[in-house]
């Protein structure tokens, strides 16, 4: 069963009571929340995701709740907790859905060390995966969203999950996070995609999410091997420039972007080295999304 088989009332009821249980990539989540914004957006963004039966194991028991104090009368807040543990300070209540997305990132990055986790978007076409590690502001999410609008499969917009043994990238398609200008840019870019309401004044500025394509969610069980690593940089007014990157530099930059190389240590670096050595690595400078995509399409031909 998928979440879209439940109506909005059923989703709200599950969230408020026994917990809404669904599968996100390789993980199962049980989510509790009484915020209507959470229930609306879960129903919207996660409609194609599979539910998890009551008798199954859950990886992350998550609550997004109102704080247990009188503040909700004055300035309402939302608190993220992972099975009773609260890793961050409360945020304003209008960020209740984004805090779920950020909190889930935190759960994965701090507890899933059976995988090598890299801060990167991953897309795939013709069985060729492109890993795009990104410093904030490099335009990785925008480029990822644009590629996905043009038919690439979304594996993740935020984290590459790599199995240490066979180097397969495990898909975890989720809503794509967009910030500030990219919200407007993506709004004008395609037709098929759908962007949810914007949330203003977060620590990242204005944020909105784009629904992951149904087709990508359907293929969430099919992993892909790394093919290309691309370090994107958005540079206003520039043409498309593709420049090959040396393997040693690529390895250093990938390590910088890893969420858990400090835990996996030498073993993690060795896995990363194998990923880098089997991939072609480029810097990509771009300003126009269509020409950038045309250039990336050429890469896999």
């Amino acid at each position: 069963m998928k979440l879209l088989d439940l109506n909005q009332v059923e989703i709200s009821h599950s969230l408020a009571h026994q917990g809404l249980r669904f599968r996100i990539g390789p993980f199962s989540v049980s989510l509790h929340s009484t915020f209507s914004s959470v229930s609306d957006r879960i129903g919207f963004f996660y409609r194609d995701f599979l539910t998890v039966d009551d008798d199954q194991f859950i990886d992350f028991h998550i609550h997004i709740k109102k704080p247990d104090n009188l503040r909700h009368w004055i300035r309402p807040q939302s608190v993220f907790s992972f099975d009773g543990f609260v890793p961050f300070k409360p945020l304003p209540a209008n960020q209740a859905f984004p805090i779920f997305e950020w909190g889930l990132n935190w759960c994965i990055a701090t507890t899933a060390h059976q995988l090598l986790i890299i801060h990167a978007a991953v897309v795939e076409k013709n069985n060729h995966a492109i890993i795009m590690p990104g410093n904030p502001g490099a335009g990785k999410s925008t480029l990822c969203a644009a590629l996905v609008c043009r038919g690439w499969r979304l594996l993740s917009d935020e984290m590459a999950l790599i199995t240490p043994n066979d180097l397969k990238i495990i898909p975890i398609p989720r809503p794509i996070g967009l910030k500030n200008e990219s919200i407007g840019i993506m709004g004008n870019f395609g037709e098929k995609h759908e962007i949810g309401p914007s949330v203003m004044d977060t620590s990242k500025g204005t944020v909105a999410h784009m629904r992951p394509p149904t087709e990508s969610v359907k293929q969430a069980n099919t992993g892909v091997y790394p093919g290309t690593i691309l370090f994107p940089t958005y540079s206003a007014g520039s043409g498309v420039e593709l420049e090959e990157v040396g393997k040693a530099i690529a390895l250093a930059r990938m390590t910088e972007q890893s969420f858990n190389s400090h835990i996996l240590g030498v073993e993690g670096i060795k896995v990363m080295e194998r990923v880098v050595s089997r991939s072609s690595v480029f810097n990509l400078k771009y300003s126009n999304l269509d020409t950038a995509i045309a250039r990336i399409d050429e890469l896999i031909r």
Binding site: S28, F57, D59, T111, A112, H113, Q114, N260, H262, I263, L264, G265
Partner: peptide, 20 residues
């Protein structure tokens, strides 16, 4: 079972690195 093994293996990594 695998679903529990992942959590246990993950904890083993944390212990190993902490001890180093």
């Amino acid at each position: 079972p695998d679903y529990a093994r992942y959590h246990l293996e993950s904890a083993q990594w944390s212990v190993k690195r902490q001890n180093e």
